[in-house]
Design a protein around this nucleic acid. Structure first.
Lengths: 201, 201
DNA sequence: TTATGAACGGAACGTATAGTATCGTAATGC
DNA sequence: GCATTACGATACTATACGTTCCGTTCATAA
């Protein structure tokens, strides 16, 4: 470990914390999450993989859980897109997201963390900003659609967002955890058009 | 522990396994899942709560995971309902389900198990029948709706089911894990009618 | 009635991991 | 160069999994 830059502004003197170590730890955490999953992840394993001492990890994160949350938070969320139409916005965003989704730890880590959250209030606070950041571009798609008159101003935007990403969450929960990107088209179409047969124009 | 009836047909002689112990273990597992969550659940705790020896548990389940899956599988799924209309079928079913959902371990356990599944092939096989059993009545609602002509015969029934329960899964994942039963109405309406503004009749 | 065999609760054990503490060393500011 | 703090390494405690033994209990079969 060669120390380069300080990662947090130390108010007092002394050797600064290594920014490289910080990144190496987070990267090792993500690597191992993908390889072995959440419950088989050990702090010792992370330390070894990152080439740091275990104490260096516990100096920065109070326990394994916040470490995983922060590593997880580094993964990309939805990329904001604006094609001018709700349907294509959503399809483009979800396809790009699934690409990441199917290749990273999201599918394995997210459920585990979500499960623990119920019994760990501290985790709720760690989690919220990550979720918000991910969700924001999605909500903005709908807000633009409202402005364009594509959808009713009375539409519950939050609920609509839940409806569109819902099938992905279902796949994550109840199925293998992978979702074919080719399903995005029919998925979004159905959510936008509705399930019931509509009257012919 | 008073032994009453044999739970599995023993082909050889000897003392049969106690059916009461079996049920006591599963009940204790569910209790503790609700109280402490999945990762804080200990087999020793289950044994103590159930009033059995730890060996009795390991004699029946190879590890903590399959035990939790079986206990979890005992929880009720969707109750089949047939009101004659898709909308009311779905609302009734989902409301009843949320009642259970909000009072049991589902919200905390399901995500944890789903997360582990990815790295534990054995868990996939344990999980599948549980999911199927839960999902079946939901699918049947849609199949009846197809027969009644309420929805198009070309409708992807599986996808439609995912769409309807999607917001619940999202709540489970990304939110607190609880869902207000009053949201079921707007949720189902939106899924059936669609997000886009429809032409006035 | 007696013998047999398996499950019982209880307890001890080995292994592994979380998290803490301590070591001598290295890096920064004064 | 001196104080201070982080560093990697290692030893340590505590806890939980999962296994193995024990003496006992219970149903069946002779």
């Amino acid at each position: 470990m060669v120390t380069t830059r300080n990662s947090r502004s130390s108010l007092s003197t002394g050797r600064p914390r290594s920014g490289e170590a910080h990144q190496a730890i987070l990267a090792a955490t993500l690597d191992l999450l993908v390889e072995v999953g959440f419950s088989a992840l050990t702090v010792e394993g992370v330390a070894t993989r990152a080439g740091v001492g275990k104490a260096t990890i516990y100096r920065r994160w109070p326990s394994k859980l916040p470490l995983v949350v922060e590593a997880f938070g580094q993964l990309p969320g939805f990329d904001a897109v604006d094609t001018g139409a709700l349907s294509s916005d959503l399809k483009k965003m979800l396809r790009a997201y699934l690409q990441v989704f199917n290749q990273t730890a999201l599918a394995t880590v997210l459920p585990s963390l979500a499960g623990e959250r119920t019994h760990n209030p501290e985790l709720v606070h760690l989690f919220r900003p990550v979720s918000r950041k991910r969700r924001k571009p999605l909500i903005e798609c709908f807000e633009r659609a409202v402005e364009r008159g594509e959808v009713s101003p009375e539409l519950d935007v939050e609920l609509a967002a839940d409806l569109v990403v819902g099938p992905i969450a279902v796949a994550l929960f109840f199925k293998g955890g992978r979702l074919d990107p080719r399903m995005v088209g029919p998925m979004v179409d159905l959510a936008l058009r509705g399930i019931l047969v509509s009257e012919p124009a």
